[in-house]
Write a protein that binds this DNA or RNA. Structure first.
Lengths: 99, 99
DNA sequence: TTTATAGTTGGAAATCTTTCAAACAATTAT
DNA sequence: ATAATTGTTTGAAAGATTTCCAACTATAAA
């Protein structure tokens, strides 16, 4: 059973990116909060619960969005973040529940 | 429900280190290989299956050992690596099976 | 219109990560 | 004793990541 590093499936790539995201305390906290709250949250609400500079928060949320772990919705001047639970569970079943 | 970043439990810390380990392709491949093989492997045997420079391999194995994801045993000039399945499953149940 | 609120972006600084070559130690084989 | 095999370590180079300030856009409120 040989494993070639060159050929990584999309799923594998997504998994690794999830691992990368969760290896950073700030993002770990954000994801954990979103999961436990169980519904979308406004960025500023998130920011009120998680102590991170607002631009750092923005940076982390962009990372999570680029990876595909969250989606966002803008309403007026507020932005709501929603955890993409289904997609994450599809490649790493149960991981969110164990955070 | 507030989450303070300052206080991370040991378990949470271990989880994050596992995520860190698995976010790197080389280590991901090593861990996956060890899991699927299902028993300890000699470093050179590992190196024959996973294409990584030997010193890079050594570096990654040291990281995995420091995190506590693997243990090693030396016999003669060979070194055997064993995945600490129980400990990993204790904090992230089923994660190895989904790699 | 002016001001406040929500969030993004650019850029710089500090730090961390990964990789490899070269030299090394330890063990086994010739 | 010499040579080959196993694996570690050091150190340097290149690159990635995180953080924060300051300036910015856009919407809503006064």
């Amino acid at each position: 059973m040989d494993i070639k590093q060159s050929s990584a499936t999309e799923t594998e790539e997504f998994r690794r990116r999830i691992f990368f995201a969760l290896s950073e305390p700030g993002r770990y906290t954000i994801v954990r909060m979103l999961y436990h709250v169980g519904h979308e949250m406004g960025c500023s609400e998130l920011n009120r619960h998680v102590e991170i500079d607002k631009s750092t928060m923005s940076y982390h949320l962009r990372t999570l969005r680029e990876i595909g772990m969250v989606t966002t919705r803008t309403q007026g001047r507020e932005k709501f973040v929603r955890l993409n639970t289904e997609r994450i569970n599809a490649v790493l079943p149960g991981i969110l529940a164990s955070l």
